[in-house]
Structures are given as C-alpha cells and as structure tokens.
C-alpha cells in the first residue's frame, strides 16, 4: 500500500442515480416495445408473468404469448420449436428454473440444435431475498457459459437491461439474459450504448482494475469512490457480457493497472471471476481477488442483508482491491 499512500485525490468520473428501479422491469418494458416493433418476437412464461414483468407483452400481444404453466422443461422445448418458422422466442422464469432445472433441455434442443432462443431469467443470485436458497441460483452463469455457442449477459441496471433485451432480439443465436428482483440504482445513461460482447469502461484508473457484472457494478462504482478518497485510482469496467468475453478490454485494463478484482452476484466457481482468471492465466498472470459467494448456498434474508453477509458490497470490493494491490510484485 505504500506506493499509493501519499497520492492526492484525483478527479474521477461520478455516476448519478437517475432513479431506482428493478432490472426485471427493464426487461418487461423492452419486451413490450419489441412486441410492437418486431412481429417475430414471441414470449413464453412458466406461471411467473407478473414476476417477470411480462404482463404488458401478454396483454397486448396475446396471440404471441404462451402461458406454459409450471412446466419449464416443456417451455424450453416449445421455445426451440417456435424458431421453426422464423420466430424469436423469449422465455421467462426465475434464473434457477431457467437453467439448472432445464439444463439438458437447453443443452440438446437449444444450444446443440443452434436454436435462436432467448432465455430470460429474473431473480438471479441472492437478491431474490427472503425465499431462500431453493430459489437463489448462484450457479447459473457457470452452467450457461459452459454450453458452446451460448451468449451469457448480466446487465447492471434497469436501462442496461432494457438495452440488452432489445440487443438480443437482433442477435442470431441462443442467449442467456440474467437479471434481478430488487430495486437498485439506475445509472447507465442513453449515450452508453450496449453492445453484446463489448465491455463498458465506466471509470478510468491506474492502480487496480475492477471487473464487475450485474448488481455489483454499482457497488464497484461506490468502491471506486472510497478508494479514490484513499488515494487509490481504480478502473471500473462493466462486463455485462460474460460470454463472449471482451478479452481485449480486460487485458488492456489489466496491463495498465497490474492487478484485478472481479465482482459478481454468483458463486466463486464458474462465474465472471473464473472467466477473467482464464484470460489472465493464458495471457498475463497477475494478482486477482474475487468478490463472489464462496462456494455456498444462500439463505433467507433481505437483499441488503444478504449482500452484506456474503460480502457482495462496496466495502468488500475496497478490501479486495487493497489486497490485490498489495500482492503486486
């Protein structure tokens, strides 16, 4: 830490909270707008239309909305079949039921069969909250990124989820889009264009690279402010697309800062951190610290309590950044 101790506080880009909204509502709004603009878009839901914010689409385009009941396996297969004839199916249920419950169906009929299905998953991670670990998936990014040809996206706020939902409709190929339940800061402005596979640098820095995804992006921005007050210049990069990973942007940042912190609302195993570590190990081995859930299931609690308990907050990102900087040779 000695090397940065006496630095002066530097100018840093600050992000303002536009409003506070849930990312799932960004999905719902975009899906409705897609319904208006693209007649090929169809949607399927497994008895969670309200939770997924799919009502506007369902109400306005009933002939293109399929209520599947509590039958997720059947929903995935039906979505795959709907692509025969040129439709673009969006499936909606909780992240756990969008992945682990239907993994073989996705593997065989969507990924291996190269079907243009958009698997849209709400209530990802522990911020699902009080329902507890049966519903909190921390393994979904890992599961989905292991499937050849699958695109995996975890947007950070309402605006970005909306942008991402629209972008995947234009992308040909299977996509896993992961978003969440709680109301969180909405801060991505319209000028920050969303491009699948293209990392979004939010703050320039030179001492440590913080690669964050999903709800942890805002926490990373908060962490950067704290670090800045300590005289540490943190670079914050929003890795909304975990696969395909923007290796170029990651390496460019890491080579500049010399150490890395990854932050995600996911298990340590198989998430963004693993993907980044693979890039570093093969190209540019440097210290990396993980902000993630350490190989455990979640539990009941409020989203805020759980994020604090599992160490998924700005404070833990700050500590990890300091640790990573301390490990620099």
């Amino acid at each position: 830490m000695k090397e940065v101790e006496n630095r002066e506080i530097i100018q840093m880009k600050e992000y303002k909270i536009i409003n506070k909204r849930d990312t799932r509502s960004g999905f719902g709004e975009a899906l409705y707008e897609l319904g208006q603009s693209n007649p090929k878009v169809v949607a399927l839901c497994a008895d969670l239309t309200g939770s997924l914010k799919m009502n506007a689409f369902a109400d306005n385009f009933p002939e293109r909305f399929f209520q599947m009941g509590i039958a997720e396996a059947n929903m995935i297969g039906t979505a795959a079949g709907l692509t025969i004839g040129g439709h673009i199916p969006f499936t909606g249920t909780f992240a756990n039921f969008s992945t682990a419950r239907v993994y073989d169906q996705i593997r065989q009929e969507v990924a291996y069969s190269e079907k243009n299905v958009k698997i849209c998953a709400s209530h990802a991670g522990i911020t699902l909250g009080e329902d507890g670990a049966t519903h909190q998936t921390l393994e979904d990014i890992g599961l989905m990124k292991m499937l050849p040809g699958m695109t995996v996206i975890n947007p950070c706020d309402f605006n970005q989820t909306k942008q991402a939902t629209k972008a995947i409709a234009d992308h040909i190929g299977p996509v896993y889009l992961r978003f969440g339940r709680p109301v969180v800061p909405n801060f991505i402005t319209d000028d920050r264009k969303f491009e699948i596979g293209k990392a979004l640098k939010l703050i320039d820095g030179k001492d440590v690279s913080i690669f964050a995804t999903g709800h942890l992006v805002w926490e990373a921005l908060e962490a950067a402010k704290i670090l800045n007050r300590k005289g540490i210049s943190a670079e914050v990069v929003d890795i909304h697309t975990i696969k395909p990973l923007d290796e170029k942007a990651i390496l460019e940042s890491a080579k500049k800062t010399g150490c890395v912190v990854t932050a995600e609302e996911h298990s340590l195993n198989g998430g963004l951190g693993d993907s980044v570590a693979q890039v570093m190990a093969r190209n540019f081995p440097i210290p990396q610290e993980y902000v993630a859930v350490m190989d455990s299931f979640g539990q009941s609690g409020t989203p805020a309590e759980l994020m604090k308990h599992y160490g998924l907050d700005a404070g833990h990102i700050v500590a990890s950044a300091e640790k990573a900087i301390g490990r620099k040779v």
């Binding site: 929903m75 297969g77 039906t78 795959a80 079949g81 709907l82 692509t83 025969i84 004839g85």
Partner: peptide
C-alpha cells in the same frame, strides 16, 4: 413432443 408444440404454434 415439447419441440413439436413450438413447431405447431409457429
């Protein structure tokens, strides 16, 4: 059969 539902709907 699930896949067939999709084809039929399409």
């Amino acid at each position: 059969l699930s896949f067939s539902i999709g084809v039929a709907r399409a």
